[in-house]
Design a protein around this nucleic acid. Structure first.
Length: 885
RNA sequence: GGGGUUAUAGCUCAGCGGGAGAGCGCUUGACUCACAUUCAAGAGGUCACUGGUUCGAAACCAGUUAGCCCCACCA
């Protein structure tokens, strides 16, 4: 007895997974090195936040990447999956700040340098967590190449890009209105603002016209507190209601300031009152209007979202919402607030902390986007970058075509510091990789810009910074551009778009040929998994309870590219059951391969019908699977394998092969069976390996073979000689007859364990020999003894009947047959046949169909007609016999 | 306001021009020597609605309805 006999009856992933991962990693199977002899296949991993923990989105994203990588590697490509992590500016800084807060330490008291030391220490301690979680998922990435967006190389790339863009005039600094998060204390870019419709009020306020007592101009606003910063009222130039007031001034209530009435096209006369209060410092539109009309800007809200001194002594220090209440109350008291209307309107929130964004005027750095977007648009239009599914091209283009300049400065400490130095003794500004010794004015009194860059600025360079850019490395030349980028559709703008224009700008080539976009993992109710809802599921828990292979299989099946995926434990159980099925089929095979020495392929005439059939089916499954993978239809590819293994290999072939393995009479046939079983099982494991790497390795290693790992086994190639349509047709007939007998047995309540005797199979002449030669298949599969008669003429009375187009089966039940029940059953079948026949006949009697449909379709319909008619005849005859009794 | 997407069996989803499919759930029977995380059999659907294209539509086109998502500076 060897250990194979001792394999437990259920598969236990915990006993297997860590061991194999270690084996792969120690043997460097994940490694890839530039090799001009081989074609590269490259994926760069979307770098998860160093602070992060693996969530279901990561699990999905990385499973897809691993499947593609493992598959291409087996196909013989030099596959590189390059991993790494992102420094995640705001998120990481927030975590460390939180830690300090608990210690009662103030960040500012600590100082920038020491704070950064704390963050690095924190990163050292927790930064490896997510990469270890990825290992548990089975990710076959080249860990020797692991990168970090703030490591030396990536930081060098960031500096290089900043300086080049600056020198090209594509980076500029401007006093501009941007999105300020009062909680994170930094500016964020437009796409980091999440707009949500919220219930609110539209306040109608009368502004008294200067020098015209009793005359007012009415304005409407959702943010009355900002009126303290108003520097004008705008109306549409063609609006006759107000034209006579343009050029005059009004008295701003509460502040009692005099502000002008101006005319600007921006105003929509149909909305609200047709007159708009203009607050250049706290509204993006008003800011633009202010620029056009040279209006002053009054900053009335500060970085904490509290009112400033400029808002007036009465309001100074008030929170913006408290101030709104106060302003409303005071206006009501003065009678100038004459109407309040409920209004749902979009309010911008910080994507990280959900605080309401305050538009704020400040000096920030921007990337001029138009010149960069143009080639990025062209690349997608010309198909140099292809989105899968294709529809995401439109999403991408729509964004690129309407792109606005990108605010890249962040008021944080953790990140790539902006390489700009200001001279305190003159107005000079120097952009340099390292701190200049002195200003051209001779001063050494220089100060570096305190801000850091948007985290996405460095991730945008990821596909080439990780390969060594700006150095001209061998890796860069060999692996760039990468083959495909796999990511969620929620970061097309944040990341994919920016990588594309960066790659085009600095490498003259888009960073990847294809972008494979997947959806989100939703909870059972179809909601996005989120911390605040507490509806998230931890993939590590699932790996522990069900195994990584089951998790992967669950994630990849049951949905199509680009669509969201709902998580259900039942589906995870299903995947686990499949793993168990594979396990047990293998257990069966291994028991019977104990002393097997793999020999040469048996001669063709030694293969049985079942052998030829399963090899043919395997060939079709392999081809389909490969074709589907090429089209990124990973779920369908997995389904094909699932059906092949479970339905065809387990339910039919293994059942058919049992007597040959157990029987002692025909040694040669037993060897043939063992050969075929080995081939089919090994190929199945190889096909399944990209999806379920652990269990396939565990079993593959026990098969008679040569090789160090299934990871590097050759992906099953097309072999025409394995296709056997003739065998498939014959097996289909045998399976149909088998199902017919089983159906009768079941409906007549013959227990499965009881052998049914004296079954008669009456064949049409064309199939007589097939049935005779293979009747033992039917006997085995339907647990019966059967006789094949010469023709269709035997008609025993005390029997239930099953009919195929080419054979009739009688299951004699010696008085036990319930005639009424049998008549009812046959009638039901006749009815369904009649329905089919009607539809087919309808087509065949239509001149239009006969005239216009392709000939092969017509031929198919005729064949169908013949088969249905034959079946109907046999059933009707049978009915007469039964009713005659 | 614009765009995308979904609507198929009780549930979750495949199929996307020529006979309505899977998994789970449900019903019935079976611990059959790989597996009860199993096996066998079965019930269950005017493929959202209305038009159109076609010899033929669940599939293609248009519109409608409902849901979800994204983008958008109408105060």
């Amino acid at each position: 007895m060897t250990e194979d006999f001792a394999l437990p009856t259920t598969y236990d992933p915990r006993a297997v997974e860590d061991r194999w991962y270690k084996h792969w990693e120690e043997n460097k199977f994940f490694r890839s090195a530039a090799d001009p002899e081989k074609e590269p296949f490259t994926i760069v991993m979307p770098p998860p936040n160093v602070t992060g923990q693996l969530h279901m989105g990561h699990a999905l994203d990385n499973t897809l990447q691993d499947i593609l990588t493992r598959w291409r590697r087996m196909q013989g490509y030099n596959a590189l999956w390059l991993p790494g992590t992102d420094h995640a500016g705001i998120a990481t800084q927030a975590k460390v700040e939180e830690q300090l807060r608990q210690e009662g330490v103030n960040k500012y008291a600590l100082g920038r340098e020491q704070f950064l030391e704390r963050v690095w220490a924190w990163k050292e301690q927790y930064g490896g967590r997510i990469t270890h979680q990825l290992r548990r998922l089975g990710a076959s990435c080249d860990w020797d190449r692991e990168r970090f967006t703030m490591d030396e190389g990536c930081s060098a790339a960031v500096l290089e890009v900043f300086i080049r863009l600056y020198e090209q005039g594509l980076i500029y600094r401007d006093n501009y209105i941007t999105n300020w998060c009062p909680h994170c204390h930094t500016t964020i870019s437009d796409i980091e603002v999440e707009h949500q419709d919220q219930p609110g009020q539209l306040y109608y306020i009368k502004y008294p016209v200067q020098g015209a007592p009793g005359e007012f101009i009415p304005v409407a606003t959702t943010r009355p507190e900002t009126m303290l910063g108003d520097t004008a009222v705008a109306v549409h130039p063609a609006d006759e209601r107000y034209s006579r007031l343009v050029g005059k001034t009004v008295i701003l209530p509460l502040a009692e300031r005099e502000i002008p009435v101006i005319a600007d096209e921006y105003v929509d006369p149909a909305y609200g009152t047709g007159a708009v209060k203009i607050t250049p410092a706290h509204d993006p539109n008003d800011f633009e209007v202010g620029r056009r009309h040279n209006l002053p800007s009054l900053q009335v809200i500060d970085r904490e979202a509290k009112m400033t001194a400029e808002a007036g002594a009465a309001y100074r220090g008030l929170d913006r919402w408290d101030c709104r209440k106060r302003v409303v109350k005071e206006l009501q008291a003065s009678g100038l607030l004459y109407q309040i209307e409920d209004l749902a309107h979009a309010v911008g929130h910080c994507y990280r902390c959900t605080t309401v964004i305050e538009p704020m005027l400040s000096k920030q750095w921007f990337v001029r986007m138009k010149p960069l977007a143009e080639p990025a648009i062209a690349a997608a239009r010309e198909g140099l970058v292809q989105f899968v599914p294709e529809r995401f091209t439109k999403v991408y283009l729509n964004w690129m075509e309407n792109i606005r300049d990108w605010c890249i400065s962040r008021q944080l400490w953790w990140g790539h510091r902006i390489p700009v130095y200001y001279c305190h003794d003159c107005d000079a500004m120097m952009v340099a990789k390292t701190r200049p010794d002195r200003c051209h004015c001779g001063s050494t009194n220089l100060e570096q810009d305190p801000d850091v860059l948007d985290t996405w600025f460095s991730s945008a360079l990821w596909p080439f910074s990780t390969l060594g850019w700006p150095e001209k490395t061998v890796d860069l030349a060999y692996y760039y551009p990468t083959s495909v980028l796999v990511t969620g559709r929620d970061i097309i703008f944040f990341w994919v778009a920016r990588m594309i224009f960066s790659g085009l700008a600095f490498m003259d080539q888009a960073p990847f040929r294809q972008v494979f976009i997947h959806g989100l993992v939703l909870d059972t109710l179809g909601r996005k998994m989120s911390k605040s809802l507490g509806n998230g599921v931890d993939p590590i828990d699932l790996i522990e309870s069900h195994g990584a292979d089951s998790l992967r299989f669950m994630l990849v099946t049951g949905n199509t590219p680009g669509n969201d995926l709902r998580f259900h434990f039942e589906r995870l159980d299903g995947a686990r059951n499949f793993a168990n099925k594979i396990w047990n089929a293998s257990r069966f095979a291994l028991m019977n391969l104990q002393d097997y020495e793999p020999g040469a392929m048996p001669e063709a005439d030694q293969l049985t019908l079942a052998d030829r059939w399963i090899l043919s089916r395997l060939e079709r499954a392999a081809r389909q699977c490969t074709g589907l993978l090429e089209q990124y239809e990973l779920g369908e590819a997995a389904r094909v394998l699932y059906e092949f293994v479970w339905d065809e290999l387990c339910d039919w072939y293994i059942e058919l092969v049992k007597p040959r393995l157990y029987g002692k009479t025909d040694r040669a046939d037993r060897e043939t069976a063992r050969y075929v079983l080995t081939v089919v099982l090994r190929s199945s494991l190889e096909l399944l390996h990209p999806f379920m790497p652990f269990i396939t390795e565990e079993i593959w290693q026990r098969l008679p073979h040569r090789g160090r790992t299934v990871m590097l086994a050759r992906w099953p190639e097309s072999r025409d000689e394995r296709l056997a349509p003739e065998a498939e047709e014959k097996m289909a007939l045998l399976m149909e007859v088998t199902r017919g007998i089983r159906q009768i047995r079941s409906e007549m309540n013959v227990p499965p364990g009881k052998k049914a005797e004296a079954i008669i199979v009456a064949p049409a002449a064309a199939v007589r020999e097939v049935l005779r030669a293979n009747i033992t298949y039917i006997e085995g599969l339907a647990n019966c003894l059967a006789e094949v008669t010469a023709g269709l003429d035997r008609k025993p009375a005390q029997a239930a009947t099953a009919v195929t187009g080419e054979a009739q089966v009688f299951v004699p039940l010696r008085g036990l047959i319930d005639v009424d029940k049998e008549v009812a059953r046959l009638n039901k079948e006749l009815q369904s046949l009649a329905k089919d026949l009607e539809r087919v006949r309808g087509k065949l009697t239509s001149q239009a169909f006969l005239g216009k449909a392709p000939t092969d379709v017509v031929a198919k319909e005729r064949a169908k007609d013949a088969e249905l008619a034959a079946k109907t005849n046999l059933l009707q005859e049978r009915l007469l016999v039964l009713q005659g009794n």
